[in-house]
Computed example of a mutant assay.
Amino acid sequence: MPTLPIPLFGSLVLVFMLVALLRREGQSPLLPALLAACAVQGVIISLAQHYEIGAFRNIQPVSATIIPALAWISFQGTAIRGPRWRLDIWHAIGPLFVLFCLINAPAWLDVSIPILYVGYGSAILLISMQGPDALPRLRLGTGDAPTKIWCIMGLCLIGSAFSDILIVAAQLAGLSAWQPWIISLFSTGILILLGALALSDSLIDPDQSVPLSPVQIDTQLDNDLMMRLDQLMATQRLYLNADLTLTQLARRLHVPIKQLSIAINRKTGENVSRYINAHRINAACESLRTGESVTSAMLSAGFNTKSNYNREFLRKMKMPPSDWIRLNERVHETT
């Protein structure tokens, strides 16, 4: 048994993360709720495993299953469709089933809890792997960062199920003394990692109240839709807004997000994020030609991270910004 309640230390770290998250303006309540649940779970684990309080040993498996359900609700509510509480409440079935198992069939806990973690984690992972267009509520300027973060979150949930498998293996091998160590180290590490990921600026949902339109795909409208989109980009330069989302674009064009996403993909061969970033790179090049610094051109063009700016610049212009500036200067000198 660890001499110090490691999960309790982890909960303290998560509380500081939660305070930082709550200080952000316009923050959706879903991610703070996930972070708070992780912090509470750390306290419960400490009371159950370190202080050996029997009541919390019974609470621990039920409270543990709230986290994957809340992670899924946060994923859906901030990245895809917005909160839908009447639909989301059905995810309480998982914790209620675990409570039923705890009372009537404790042996099922070793199976039901890992299944919930693997199920929710796999669902988040599979959707996130589809790319930025699968997360229409998140800012296009963040590039691939949100998809990578949610992929890692999905893997964390799957990894948590692996810790349950290790516990069962330790019990079968007669190494029950290892159980508190496995729970303390695995749970604390995964909970802190989930909290740190939830704290990322890339997961901010700037458009919390916009419902998504039903999907209606008509390929004959692609050309007209792209003409309207290109005109909107040229006249209103929406790409300069660092908080621009696919949902906002679809609303301005009065079309479902899926139809807009598919039209862009068919006509340009790129996803929505890269389409917008191409316009931003063109705007950045205009600023660089006037003598603006690389950082100033990046910010004025709608990028908010240097890594995404450099990556998109290299992808479109086939060279980093510094080399492009030198090449542009040589062209001017020769003319």
Rank of each mutant, 00 (worst) to 15 (best):
E333N: 02
P320E: 06
M317P: 02
N308H: 02
L314N: 02
V331N: 08
K306D: 12
I325M: 15
A301E: 11
S307T: 05
N310M: 10
N310R: 07
L314V: 05
R326N: 15
I325D: 14
R315Y: 09
N308D: 13
K306V: 09
A297G: 04
T334S: 11
D323L: 12
T305N: 06
I325G: 11
N304Y: 00
M298T: 00
F303A: 13
E329I: 13
H332E: 05
N310T: 02
E329R: 14
T334D: 02
W324Y: 09
N304F: 00
R311D: 07
K306F: 12
I325V: 15
H332Q: 05
F313E: 07
N310K: 05
D323W: 03
M317T: 02
D323S: 11
E333C: 00
E312G: 04
E312V: 09
G302S: 09
L299W: 01
F303K: 05
W324E: 06
K316V: 13
I325C: 13
N304W: 01
R330G: 00
F313Y: 03
L299G: 00
F303I: 12
A297K: 04
L314S: 03
K318Q: 13
T334N: 03
K316N: 04
H332S: 02
Y309F: 15
M317N: 08
K306C: 09
W324H: 01
K318R: 09
A301S: 15
G302R: 05
H332F: 00
L327H: 14
S300D: 11
E333M: 03
K318A: 07
F303N: 10
E312T: 13
M317S: 09
N328H: 14
N328V: 06
D323R: 07
N304S: 00
R330A: 14
P320H: 03
N308K: 01
A297R: 03
Y309A: 13
N310H: 09
S307F: 05
N308T: 10
K306L: 12
M298F: 04
M319Y: 04
N328L: 11
I325Y: 09
P321C: 12
Y309N: 05
K316L: 11
Y309T: 05
K318M: 06
G302P: 05
H332L: 04
L299P: 00
L314R: 01
R330H: 08
E312D: 15
T334L: 10
E333Q: 06
R311I: 01
E312C: 12
V331R: 12
T334Y: 05
S307A: 13
K318N: 11
S322H: 06
R315Q: 06
N304L: 00
L314W: 03
K318E: 14
K316G: 00
M319F: 01
L299N: 09
P321I: 10
R326E: 15
H332A: 06
R330M: 11
E333K: 04
R330E: 12
S300I: 07
S307Y: 04
E329F: 11
F303D: 12
S307H: 07
P321D: 14
F313V: 01
G302K: 01
T334C: 01
